[in-house]
Amino acid sequence: MKRFGIMIWTLLTIFSLCNNTAFAEPSPMLATEARSAVLMDAHSGKILFEKNSHEKLSPASITKVMTMLLVMEAIDQGKIKWQDQVRVSEKAASMGGSQIFLQPGEQMSVTDLLKGIAVASANDASVAIAEYIAGTEEHFVELMNKRARELGMKDTHFANSNGLPADNHFSSAYDIAVMSRELLKHPEITKFTGVYQDYLRKDSPKPFWLVNTNKLVRFYLGVDGLKTGFTSEARFCLTATAQRDQMRAIAVVLGEPNAKIRNKEVSQMLDYAFNQYTHFTVYKKGDLIAQRQIPKGDPEWVEFRANQPMGILIRKGEDPKAYHKKIIWQEVSAPIKKGQVLGKVQISKEGRVVTEWELVSVQDIQEATFWSNFKKTLRKIFFIS
Rank of each mutant, 00 (worst) to 15 (best):
S61Y: 13
Q85F: 00
E137R: 02
I129S: 02
I80W: 04
S58R: 06
L70W: 05
V86E: 08
H54S: 14
S36R: 10
V110S: 01
G78C: 07
S89Q: 06
G135L: 08
R35G: 06
D41M: 08
V86A: 01
G78P: 08
A118Q: 13
K146H: 14
G97L: 03
V110I: 15
V119L: 06
K115P: 02
G96Q: 11
N123A: 07
E138C: 08
A60M: 12
A22V: 15
D84M: 01
M95G: 02
A24S: 14
R147L: 06
E131D: 03
Q77E: 15
N52A: 11
R87P: 00
V141N: 06
H43E: 15
M153G: 02
I133R: 09
M40W: 14
A122G: 15
Q77A: 13
S61F: 12
T63M: 00
C18T: 08
H54A: 11
S16P: 07
Q99V: 01
H54L: 12
I75D: 02
T136R: 02
Q103I: 13
A37L: 13
K46N: 04
G96C: 09
K46F: 10
V119D: 06
S53H: 06
E131I: 11
Y132G: 05
H139T: 13
V141H: 02
I100V: 15
V71I: 15
W82K: 01
A34W: 11
A34Y: 13
A42Y: 12
M144W: 07
S27N: 06
F23D: 12
P59N: 11
V127Q: 13
V65L: 14
A148K: 01
G45V: 12
N123Q: 11
S27V: 12
D41G: 05
S27I: 09
E131T: 07
I62F: 03
G45C: 10
